[in-house]
Design a protein around this nucleic acid. Structure first.
Lengths: 199, 199
DNA sequence: CCGATTTGGTATTGACACGATACTAAACCG
DNA sequence: CGGTTTAGTATCGTGTCAATACCAAATCGG
C-alpha cells in the first residue's frame, strides 16, 4: 500500500499548525485568536454570495453558533461590520471595516508562508495546488459539503463580453474583480483530468 | 506577482480545517478534542528521541504547558503511558497504551483523507509532498524551529550493513522500523534541488 | 566541587473557542 | 394562513491555550 497520501496529510497538518502558531503571534497585539485571523482573511476574499455567517461556518468547518460568537467579538473590536440583507432580512452580511482592512494589510499573516515558499518554482507550486484542489473537491463531495471556488471554473459562470460576466445561477452581473473572489455557489465545471506539467 | 503560494496556503488551511472537523466527529464518542487525536497520531509515529512532551509541543506548534495539560487528560483516559527516562530523570517519555493503539486503529481518523485522495495519481501526490516538504523545511529554518523527519534523508543517518543502522548524532543503533518513524533530531542532508517528475 | 544557570516538566489562572441546546424571527410552502 | 424550514443569536459547560510561577534534575564555571 502506498503511504504517500498519509505523508501528505501529515505535512498539511503540520504546516497548518505552524501557521496557526504564526497567526497567534501576529495577532497577539490585537488580542485575537488564530481563528479570528482566518475569519478576517476569509472576509477579505469573500464575494457577495459568501459574505454570510453561514458560508463562513461551512468554510471554516465550524458550527454556525461558534462562528456567530466569533463574529460578535470581531464586531465589538470594530474589525468587521454587519448589516442586514435587503431581500432576506434573516440574512446578515459581513464585511471588513476599515480597521479590519488595515489589520490584514499590516499584520500580513501570510508573510511567513510567502517566505517559506520562496525557493519553490512556480510550476511545482501550481502542481501542488492542483493536487490539493482535487483532494478538496473530492472531500467535499464525500461529505456533501458545499464547494468554494472562483468563478473561473464554475459551471454557472458566463462571459457576456470581454469584460462583462454573469453568474448563471443567481442571474447577477459580476464585475471583473468579483469573479476572483471566493464564492459559495461554486460548482466544478465538467472535470477533465489534469496532469502535472513539466517545469 | 504570482499568487499561487497564497492559493496553496488557502488550500492547506481549508483542508486542515475540514480534517479538524473530521477528527472532532470520529473522537466525539471518546470525548476527545481534535488536538488529542493529533497527539495520539504523533505518538504512534514518534521514535525514541521524539516521544517527549517537548518534542510534541514543537511539532504541534504549541507551548509545553499546553501540551502538558493535554497529556494529563490523555493519561487520565488511559490512552497513553508516561514514564521517566533512565538517564535524564527530568525527561518524561510517552507511548500509546493498548487502548490508545486500539483507538487509532479503530477510529481511523485519516480515513476521510484516504478517500479524498483516491483519484489522484501517486505521482502527483509525491510531487505535492515534495513541494510541501520543502516549504516546511524552509519554514523551520526561518523560525529556528527544529526539524522533524525520518532517518532516510538525515545527515546523521548511517547504514552499518544491509539491515543495521545507526544515528551518528546519538550513537545508538537503530532497528529498521525505527528509521521510519518521526525523529526530532533530523537534519536535512545536503539539499539537491528536486524537480517534479513526470507521470 | 559547589553555586548559578539552564532545561524539562507541572500547577494555576483567566480568556475564550467550540458544540449542544434552546430559542427568535423571517421566509417558504401547502 | 398555519406548519415547516432557514439564518442567526443566547446560554452554558467543557476544555484549549498562553502566561506566569514554580520545581527538580542537569550542566556549567569558577
Amino acid at each position: 500500500m502506498d503511504k504517500s497520501p498519509q505523508v501528505l496529510l501529515e505535512l498539511v497538518e503540520r504546516l497548518s499548525n505552524l501557521m496557526r502558531a504564526e497567526f497567534r503571534r501576529v495577532s497577539s497585539d490585537e488580542q485575537l485568536q488564530p481563528v479570528h485571523v482566518q475569519a478576517l482573511t476569509y472576509l477579505a476574499r469573500a464575494n457577495r454570495y459568501s459574505n454570510t455567517p453561514q458560508a463562513m461556518a461551512e468554510y471554516l468547518g465550524l458550527t454556525k453558533g461558534t462562528v456567530s460568537q466569533s463574529l460578535l467579538l470581531l464586531d465589538r473590536r470594530g474589525l468587521i461590520e454587519r448589516y442586514q440583507d435587503d431581500l432576506d432580512r434573516r440574512v446578515v452580511r459581513l464585511r471588513l471595516s476599515q480597521a479590519g482592512d488595515a489589520f490584514i494589510a499590516e499584520a500580513q499573516p501570510q508573510l511567513a508562508w510567502q517566505h517559506a515558499t520562496r525557493n519553490i518554482s512556480p510550476n511545482r507550486i501550481r502542481n501542488a495546488v492542483s493536487a490539493l484542489r482535487e483532494t478538496l473537491a473530492t472531500f467535499q463531495e464525500d461529505n456533501e459539503g458545499r464547494a468554494f471556488g472562483q468563478c473561473h471554473g464554475c459551471q454557472h459562470f458566463e462571459r457576456l463580453s470581454t469584460r462583462a460576466y454573469r453568474c448563471g445561477l443567481m442571474g447577477d452581473r459580476l464585475s471583473g474583480p468579483e469573479t476572483k473572489r471566493i464564492c459559495w455557489l461554486y460548482v466544478q465545471k465538467g472535470t477533465a483530468v489534469e496532469e502535472d506539467e513539466d517545469d
